[in-house]
């Protein structure tokens, strides 16, 4: 930052477009990841309007291999794998994105409070340590088995183990920021706390949070698949990538297409999200980024 703007001629600021292009050239993984993810989201949202009903059984057409008529083949109940894979994308992506959003929002709130209110900090952090000590997949399985299987329960069950990590990250940022001179200056001129949080703390946590959220999204998609595989995930009549693979796993030697296509879609999506996260992280301050892992 240059202070004496009136005496020194500023280098001409690049236009927005040029800056984006430069950023993309330096971090090519970001546009790649975004692009693939975008395509997946569009396919998942629009796809089901153009395919047959992914739930429609037709037992007389069961286990047909991929062909012109059935693009990805059919499963053991004669449902089309193509239609199911696209519909499954909706569920898997919805779970991934919701978990990422909910856990960052909840984690952000708890983290800021905990970083600012000393009295609560100790208690909150002990609870978070305790939650982190319970292996996430186990906690999620237990939560789902104890309640009933539904998409919202799956989202909650995957979110709960992710929250403590976000809380820790946010709290660390808050703790380091609150000692900064400009924050103390703001406090001393009587700026109200909510305003300080909004104006100074939130923007500082945003960048690492976005990176963290992408990783959470990627892991949530995988965890959903794992939970469904174990029979403790999304209700089976709703096709998610995990569910389709879970149902098709019995047949992986006879009719590999049932798990091949959703598996491929899942791997590509998660890969794209991870690559996106890596790119975003690299383009941020590496020291902040490291704190998250």
């Amino acid at each position: 930052m240059t202070l004496a703007t009136d005496t020194i001629e500023l280098p001409r600021r690049d236009s927005r477009r040029v800056r984006i292009r430069k950023y993309c050239r330096r971090h090519p993984t970001v546009p790649f990841g975004l692009g693939v993810l975008g395509v997946m989201i569009i396919i998942s949202i629009l796809g089901p309007y153009f395919t047959v009903d992914p739930l429609a059984l037709s037992p007389f057409k069961r286990l047909k291999p991929p062909s012109g008529e059935f693009l990805f083949g059919t499963d053991m109940y004669g449902r089309e794998v193509f239609a199911r894979t696209l519909a499954g994308g909706r569920i898997s992506l919805a779970v991934g994105i919701s978990v990422a959003l909910v856990s960052t929002v909840v984690g952000l709130a708890i983290g800021i409070v905990s970083g600012y209110v000393r009295a609560l900090d100790a208690v909150v952090m002990r609870v978070m340590d305790g939650l982190m000590a319970i292996p996430g997949v186990l906690l999620a399985i237990a939560l789902i088995s104890l309640t009933s299987a539904s998409i919202s329960n799956v989202i909650i069950a995957i979110t709960i183990p992710e929250v403590p990590r976000v809380v820790r990250l946010v709290r660390a940022v808050v703790l380091s920021i609150r000692e900064q001179p400009y924050i103390q200056a703001a406090v001393s001129v009587g700026m109200p706390l909510p305003r300080i949080l909004w104006k100074h703390v939130l923007p500082n946590t945003l960048a690492p949070l976005i990176v963290q959220a992408t990783y959470i999204c990627a892991s949530a998609v995988i965890v959903e698949a794992i939970l469904s595989f174990l029979g403790a995930g999304t209700p089976p009549e709703i096709p998610s990538w995990g569910n389709i693979m879970a149902e098709g796993r019995t047949y992986f030697q006879i009719t590999p297409w049932i798990i091949l296509f959703p598996g491929l879609f899942l791997a590509i999506t998660v890969l794209a999200v991870n690559v996106l996260g890596d790119g975003l992280r690299d383009s941020l301050d590496p020291r902040i980024a490291r704190r998250m892992r």
Partner: peptide, 22 residues
């Protein structure tokens, strides 16, 4: 390393069984 993060463990397991056991 990124790929390893992106494929669920059960898929890897089945592929290994298929190739190395069967």
């Amino acid at each position: 390393a990124v790929l390893g993060f992106s494929v669920p463990v059960f898929v890897i397991g089945y592929v290994l069984i298929y190739v190395f056991s069967l």
